[in-house]
């Protein structure tokens, strides 16, 4: 474990530190993600870190700092879980945990006309896609897949339980197609899950005790390795 820590800490950066030239790809342009800033200082160009976290190189020329942030910043095409806080003439105002309240148009659902609008109450949960995320405008949501026009899992989330306060990096891991934790739980318990990129997860299963078990597993498995996650899930299911 100590070896892993030391290995990880080599790529762990603090605010104000420079990214060494040896890491930066010299051919072509570089795409900087969150946590990195390009600075020109005394005719020298450098990439400076602005968040404490681990350096991720997503592509050949793309870099970002992966930090354990809890506050969500909307980005286009992100899947989010929102809570309706008010209604207005053309739709709903939805809290997605970002700096600004998002807007969900009443017609932004599958097969909806002006006469057959969905009736969502204040407090209802919706699984939606961020269709517009601009710095100078309020985020806008849609409850259908833009390419097919079908619901594709988006829409109102009925029953179930919503987990809040998860770190965004944990949610990014959960949303991966081959997530060890969810696959292990799924092999023992049938359940529905909606993972939002905004640090919220909605879980629904056949009864309350299994829902609580799944929520406990999701909360506690953030810092576990794949093997530890499998072992932890099996131990939880034995207690059920």
């Amino acid at each position: 474990m100590a070896e892993v820590e030391e290995k990880g800490l080599l790529s762990y950066y603090f605010p104000g530190e420079r990214i060494p030239d040896s890491i930066i790809s010299q051919d072509g342009s570089i795409r900087l993600g969150p946590g990195l800033v390009f600075q020109k200082k005394d005719r020298e160009e450098e990439i400076v870190v602005s968040k404490a976290g681990r350096l991720h190189q997503t592509g050949k020329n793309a870099m970002l700092i992966d930090s354990r942030t809890k506050r969500y910043i909307p980005a286009t095409n992100d899947q989010v879980i929102g809570q309706i806080i008010s209604r207005f003439a053309e739709g709903y105002r939805v809290d997605i945990g970002s700096a600004h309240i998002a807007q969900l148009n009443a017609l932004a659902f599958e097969n909806v006309t002006r006469k057959s609008r969905p009736n969502l109450n204040v407090g209802s949960l919706v699984y939606a896609r961020v269709s517009l995320a601009d710095r100078d405008m309020e985020p806008e949501l849609e409850c259908f897949d833009a390419t097919t026009g079908k619901a594709a899992g988006y829409g109102e989330l009925k029953n179930g339980y919503m987990i809040t306060g998860l770190s965004l990096s944990h949610c990014r891991k959960l949303i991966l197609p081959k997530n060890t934790l969810l696959q292990t739980l799924g092999s023992y318990i049938p359940f529905e899950i909606a993972v939002g990129m905004n640090g919220r997860v909605w879980v629904n299963s056949e009864n309350l005790s299994t829902t609580v078990l799944i929520c406990t597993a999701i909360r506690n498995c953030e810092f576990m390795s794949d093997e530890e996650q499998i072992k932890y899930c099996k131990d939880l299911i034995k207690k059920l």
Binding site: G8, L9, Y12, R68, E222, S225
Partner: peptide
């Protein structure tokens, strides 16, 4: 302060293989 931030990151880094 740096070592405190590093300490808080250790659980996350330990889970990386």
């Amino acid at each position: 302060m740096q070592s405190a931030v590093r300490q808080s990151a250790k659980p996350a880094l330990a889970s990386l293989s």
